[in-house]
Design a protein around this nucleic acid. Structure first.
Lengths: 128, 128
DNA sequence: CTGAATCCGTTTCGATACTG
DNA sequence: CAGTATCGAAACGGATTCAG
């Protein structure tokens, strides 16, 4: 799984369309791509309190497998949402933390949280 | 692709975990699942001004194929974000519109839009 | 016009084993 | 401890054909 640069910028679904079809979606699409990975929002959420080591993340996301966690972290790093700080020691030690952009993203997740809470509530009350 | 009921409620990635690992993620996960489908946010966005016919949606999302559009619409309908109104005429006529829950979701997308705009800006300025 | 059904390639994700 | 490498299953999504 080679990742060289931003993973979310390849192309927006709409912005390659003819002018009359273009809608202001690119920015929403970019944001969507950030969180399409199954575990990315969990990773960001776990890092909101401060930096964590690889193994801490792994412990807190029990059903993720190691290689995929690495992959998701790498994508988030290349996309500029988190910092990776590797200490040159044995055994290895790597700490991940949110960048400013990652911190800002928490705001998006809070809105998602609100909407989702209400959705779940309505669902339980049989309104959906 | 059979869809019987809510597509996003199967289970949250985290809430089946032991208590000490459970984090308040379910509501965020639910919201994420709404928009994981490649075209769902575009569909919702296109419907924000009012109801549209199937063919209008198809015209406005040129690169989607018909059967997949049907599928995405069905999921959004079952998940309670949009209404499907079928007229019993020939040729067939079906109109889609947002439910209240779908309208509320626009708010989430606006926050995503803001974050994404800033992200794109920072990217263009070489800050990412 | 609005689907349904089928086929099929791609991407995502999980399991496992190995490395410095 | 924090990765790589490899394999395979499952989900996603596109193309095509058919139907009322």
């Amino acid at each position: 799984m080679p990742i060289k640069k931003q993973t979310i910028f390849d192309e927006c679904s709409m912005c390659s369309q003819p002018e009359e079809m273009k809608i202001q979606m690119c920015s929403v699409c970019v944001t969507q791509k950030i969180i399409r990975g199954k575990w990315k929002i969990v990773i960001i959420w776990l890092l909101r309190d401060g930096e964590k080591r690889f193994s801490e993340l792994q412990r807190n996301i029990p059903r993720i497998n190691q290689s995929y966690l690495t992959h998701q972290l790498k994508e988030l790093e290349y996309d500029g949402l988190l910092n990776r700080k590797a200490y040159n020691v044995i055994p290895p030690k790597v700490e991940y933390s949110l960048t400013q952009k990652g911190i800002d993203f928490i705001g998006v997740m809070e809105v998602m949280d609100n909407w989702g809470k209400q959705y779940i509530l309505d669902f339980k009350n049989g309104n959906i």
